[in-house]
Design a protein around this nucleic acid. Structure first.
Ligand code: SF4
Ligand code: SF4
Lengths: 144, 144
DNA sequence: AATAATTAAGACAATTTTGTCTGAATTGAA
DNA sequence: TTCAATTCAGACAAAATTGTCTTAATTATT
């Protein structure tokens, strides 16, 4: 489905969004411990997303990553596309290079519909949603 | 979504099913040319599926692969699971190891539903379906 | 029986993805 | 200012996936 890199990215973004309350930055050690990823690898991933404008970063002591209100409105779909591209949302069910509407295969219409449903789910899911959920029901981002 | 290996496998199985009409075997050269895969690689993949009982093979001159009526009733889902496992059909939307019904994340229920829809599509799609379609509307298995 | 054409098997190789290391740059605090 | 803690950048390394080669076994035809 999603690449491992992309899964780490989603979990990390959710975690950072949840913990970007009062201006304090979240560092990669804390992130990796909480989402169950290699520390330096999630660093690389967030560096990339940071350059693409998905979150803010700060070097030096007490530095780390931060997601402000505006960025928390981004959807999971945006993050997925930024890392894995849109193959998951637009690709073919049996791996062809393009989707042939003219000569569709037996699963084409059903597949396309389901694929669109998945896309809509990721598009309408924002980081804020996960953030606001923190209070009463903490989202589990890691196997315990 | 699916691994490249699995995509090759699906396309090859569809092709072989379509061309297993009158007892003649289909060889890997023909298959690879028609589905756009490396010849020896699809050989390996079909060897594997053959050992798992998804199709028949025969060595020697005029040998190749063959899918009989019974095997053509297998679903695409069976093939996917045989190669990629069931991560696509049962995995989490953000990459956790297990699906937590007790503390679901904001996308859990929608995601689960869509994932099940995808699963049902692959489960109900059989090789025969593609086979019977051959006559009037040939399925395109390769980029032209 | 000899030959040509095919899959089977396992080792090997290339590529992509995932993960690590090292040093530089930056930042806040002492 | 100095120091410690952090991200940044790029090279490097390991692992997984994808693809190839070589030889053997098998089969039908001649
Ligand atoms: S018709 Fe089927 S095989 Fe062809 S592009 Fe669409 S989903 Fe893929
Ligand atoms: S609740 Fe959400 S994050 Fe947790 S396992 Fe289900 S889909 Fe994944």
């Amino acid at each position: 489905m999603l690449s491992k890199t992309c899964e780490y990215a989603l979990r990390a973004m959710i975690y950072v969004a949840q913990n970007s309350q009062n201006g304090t930055m979240v560092n990669i050690k804390e992130i990796s411990e909480n989402i169950g990823s290699p520390e330096l690898f999630i660093g690389k991933i967030l560096q990339n997303l940071s350059k693409q404008g998905f979150l803010q970063s700060s070097k030096g002591r007490y530095g780390g990553f931060y997601i402000d209100e505006k960025d928390a409105k981004r959807s999971l779909a945006d993050i997925v596309v930024a890392i894995d591209g849109d193959k998951m949302f637009r690709g073919c069910g049996v791996g062809l290079d393009y989707c042939s509407e003219k000569k569709p295969c037996p699963i084409h219409y059903e597949y396309k519909e389901a694929r669109t449903a998945i896309h809509n789910i990721y598009k309408s899911a924002t980081l804020v949603q996960f953030k606001s959920l923190t209070r009463d029901v903490p989202v589990r981002l890691k196997r315990t």
